[in-house]
C-alpha cells in the first residue's frame, strides 16, 4: 500500500503590527516587513508531522507567494517536513481566494497522489477562510473546516475530525482524500530542529514552480482570475480602555471586580 501523503499548505504573512495596505490597489504590502508563518499554518505543520509520526508516510509543504517565502518553507523542513514546493510567478500576484485556491490546486495536482491536504483555518492577513474549501472543490476531495483534532481511521480510508462549532463541537468522518482546515491553537507547534535547519538551508528540497510549470490557465490566475473587487479598506479605531487598577488583597480585588461586572450580567 502507498504510504500516507499529507500536503501542508502554508502562507507567509506580515506580523500583525506590520500590516499595511497599499492605498492604490488595497492589497497588503509585503515588502520589507517582518513576517511569520501564518499562525494556524504552524498548527497545520504540527498536525501533519504528528500524523506522519503515527502512520508513517510523507509531509509535503506547498505555498504560493513571492521568492521571500523560500526561507520560511525551509523552517517547515527544519520542523520535520520532507519537501516543499513554492509556486512563485509574477502572474500570480493580486490573486483573490478563487485564483489562489486554483493555483494551489494545480500545484498539488502536479505533486501527485495525496491523501490529506491540511490548510490553516484562515490567514491572519486576509482572513477569508475561503482557500481550503476552494482547494477541496478544485480537486474534488471531501472537506472539513475548522478541525481541532484529526485522526486517520485505520484500514477504513476515512478521516475523523472534531470540528469547532459555536458553543460546542461535532465529530465527523469523511473519506480520504480530504482537504481539512485546521483551527489556530489546535496544538502546540514543535520548535524546529537546529541541525535540520542547517541541512534545510544548505540543501533542503525546496522546488520553485512558475505558472507554466503547473499548467495554469492564464485567465484563471492573478488579477485576471480574481472576480473579487476590493472597494476600500478602512482602519478600525482601537477602543480606548479605562485602565483602572483594583487595589487591596486578592479577595478584595475579586469582590471589586465582581461589582464592576455585575451591571453587565
Amino acid at each position: 500500500m502507498r504510504q500516507l501523503h499529507i500536503i501542508a499548505c502554508v502562507k507567509v504573512v506580515p506580523k500583525p503590527e506590520e500590516v499595511k495596505v497599499n492605498p492604490e490597489n488595497w492589497t497588503i504590502e509585503r515588502d520589507g516587513v517582518r513576517s511569520e508563518i501564518n499562525p494556524p499554518d504552524m498548527n497545520v505543520l504540527e498536525m501533519a508531522l504528528a500524523l506522519k509520526e503515527q502512520h508513517g508516510g510523507k509531509v509535503t509543504v506547498v505555498a504560493m507567494g513571492p521568492p521571500m517565502f523560500d526561507s520560511y518553507l525551509r523552517l517547515a523542513l527544519a520542523m520535520g517536513a520532507d519537501e516543499a514546493y513554492l509556486l512563485s510567478d509574477r502572474s500570480f500576484a493580486g490573486a483573490d481566494t478563487l485564483a489562489t485556491s486554483y493555483a494551489l490546486a494545480q500545484g498539488i495536482r502536479k505533486i501527485g497522489e495525496f491523501d490529506l491536504i491540511l490548510c490553516g483555518e484562515e490567514s491572519s492577513d486576509g482572513a477569508t477562510a475561503q482557500v481550503p474549501p476552494g482547494i477541496a472543490e478544485w480537486l474534488n476531495t471531501s472537506q472539513i473546516t475548522y478541525a481541532e483534532d484529526l485522526k486517520i481511521v485505520p484500514d477504513s480510508g476515512m478521516v475523523k475530525a472534531q470540528r469547532e462549532l459555536a458553543g460546542g463541537y461535532e465529530v465527523i468522518q469523511v473519506p480520504l482524500p480530504c482537504t481539512a482546515s485546521v483551527k489556530v491553537g489546535a496544538n502546540e507547534p514543535r520548535f524546529m530542529d537546529i541541525e535540520r535547519k542547517t541541512w534545510a538551508n544548505a540543501e533542503g528540497p525546496v522546488t520553485t514552480w512558475n505558472a507554466q510549470d503547473i499548467e495554469v490557465d492564464p485567465e484563471m490566475i492573478g488579477i485576471p482570475g480574481s472576480p473579487t473587487i476590493v472597494d476600500g479598506v478602512a482602519q478600525a479605531e482601537a477602543t480606548e480602555r479605562k485602565r483602572e487598577f483594583l487595589k487591596g488583597t486578592p479577595e478584595e480585588q475579586v469582590k471589586a471586580l465582581i461589582e464592576r461586572l455585575r451591571p453587565y450580567l
Binding site: 506580523k15 511569520e36 502546540e188 507547534p189 520548535f191 524546529m192
Partner: peptide
C-alpha cells in the same frame, strides 16, 4: 519532544520576535 507545554511557543516567540 518530552518538553512541557508552552516552551516550544516561547522559543518560536524568541525566533520570530
Amino acid at each position: 519532544r518530552e518538553v512541557p507545554e508552552g516552551l516550544p511557543t516561547l522559543l518560536w516567540d524568541i525566533y520570530f520576535d
